[in-house]
Design a protein around this nucleic acid. Sequence first.
DNA 1: TTAAAGTCAATAGA
DNA 2: TCTATTGACTTTAA
Length: 474
Amino acid sequence: APESPMSSSESVKSLTELVQQPCPAIETSKDGKSQESSEPPASESQSTTPLPLSGHSALSIQELVAMSPELDTYGITKRVKEVLTDNNLGQRLFGETILGLTQGSVSDLLARPKPWHKLSLKGREPFVRMQLWLNDPNNVEKLMDMKRMEKKAYMKRRHSSVSDSQSCESSSAGIDYSQGASPQPQHQLKKPRVVLAPEEKEALKRAYQQKPYPSPKTIEELATQLNLKTSTVINWFHNYRSRIRRELFIEEIQAGSQSQAGSSDSPSARSSRAAHSSEGDSCDGVDAEGPPDGKPSGPEADEFSNAAAKSQGGPAEPAFEAGEEALRGARPSERAEPESLEDTDDEGRLRAPRQSSPPAPQRPGDALETLPNSATEGDASTSAASTSVLTGESSYKSKESSEKISSVPSTSSTPASGSQKANSLQSLFGFSEAASSRNTRDSSLRKKKAANLNNIIHRLEKAASREEAVEWEF
DNA sequence: TTAAAGTCAATAGA
DNA sequence: TCTATTGACTTTAA
């Protein structure tokens, strides 16, 4: 049902044309699962999208993904970025045409590629597509052509405001875009995008540091205090957790590539974490319980534990008041408004444009930092934790520093091979052999422990909250 | 049901 | 423009 109406069909179309494949029925499927849609060329009726390059392989993208050896995601994105930059090709074009993703997704993907082993089948798809694209000798030209056609279509449209839909080729791109462009005055009920104020974010981050997995109660509290919708707080935690995790991935990758100059990447482990503690709030041991697939998921996560450990003597003390505590320092309402909000608690926030409230008079930071560390309810453990959070000069602000992935690994080589059929998988992916992680058992061990600790805490809390008996295995 | 993974799409910044 | 960020939503797994 969901699925982005545009991307799939659109990209499919354009792709087909680019690749000059006969292009049979294109759109359609959507029902399947994700956005990738039917698959034109070969026979797979499965949901597949035509691959640009080595084209018509008899394999569907899924099959390729499934068969693909471990790819050096970091190396791939690096090269893609290079190619795009060198040829002045935009992420939007590339994403919609080659990957079937939107610009934002492409940006994200290129900036923070997750290591192959951390990706689900679906998540690997874009990387396989990128790899295939890189292997396509005509990749750039095709994209350039696309670009030209788009431009043409655009011009055409501008002039002949109304009609114009035809123009096949150009339309492939044009059509779709125009659609998304504006046609439908969607003044409808689009709810405005929520934009969290810096203070709110800080408060949430602090809450996160104390409790990466806040209980419903805490969430409720946070929401109320910050005058946010509960769902917003929930979403924020979800997003934050996952993004922190990704930050870690790239940190690892970078660290790895640095320490070992040329190998193929696959950062599975490695850490050396960071010097940049930026994002002080990061990690929670989330990963520990990670992807169920049994993989012990290893490396990551320990910043949070660090933080936790640091701030409170013992890890296992999940500040239950996390929410409150965190709030204390930050909630904008603190001085701006009486947080009481009578309006629909949940909706309350909608009434006013986010920004308006908080930015308050002074810089966000001080509120937090100067805060007299509440601890009103002087609960030892709690206050201890909260204190560190509230006063913790550490994190915030530094956060944004999350650096770019600049550095460079080396890696992959990828021979460009051109047209070949599926079997040429080797040539397609042939380079990536290795990579497999290895090493770093040591540091990762440490992390694992920390992560595990977090996991335990989380489970404990969970159990506690629902008062169920659980057997713990530590 | 819950959390993670993946994306979209609005929008902030260059 | 184009890219980066991020809240929300959908899909996938447990």
